[in-house]
Amino acid sequence: MTRTCLVVDDSRVVRKVARRILEAHGFAVAEAEDGQKALDACRLGLPDCVLLDWNMPVMDGITFLHHLRQEFGPEKPPVVFCTTENDLSHIELAIAAGAQEYIMKPFDDEILSGKLSQVGL
């Protein structure tokens, strides 16, 4: 069965780059431009994983993650943060909130596919 990934990022360019990589690895990709839209999408149906930006309008990534874990439990879907926030305190915060992996932008195919493989996809 095709695996699904929800790409949450307010940058159209980042979403496009991520989509291209993910589709090349056999994922079906859905997009959301902020945390609220991502949460709405998850309520309609959970993806197999979420690629999540931190800084976004309306609802940021960490707030989305808190809601996601509260509503759907601590593990699924696996969440990989993908953000320009690259200091240890942000990474620790993300893990504490329930993110399974963390990508510091910029990223490429190798990093993204490697991180998805690390979360079991």
Partner: peptide, 19 residues
């Protein structure tokens, strides 16, 4: 930053590295 994202699980990064 590129090297620590190739293969290294983030938990290991947090535990064993400092920026």
């Amino acid at each position: 930053q590129f090297e620590v994202q190739r293969g290294l699980p983030v938990q290991m990064l947090v535990k064993h590295f400092r920026k």
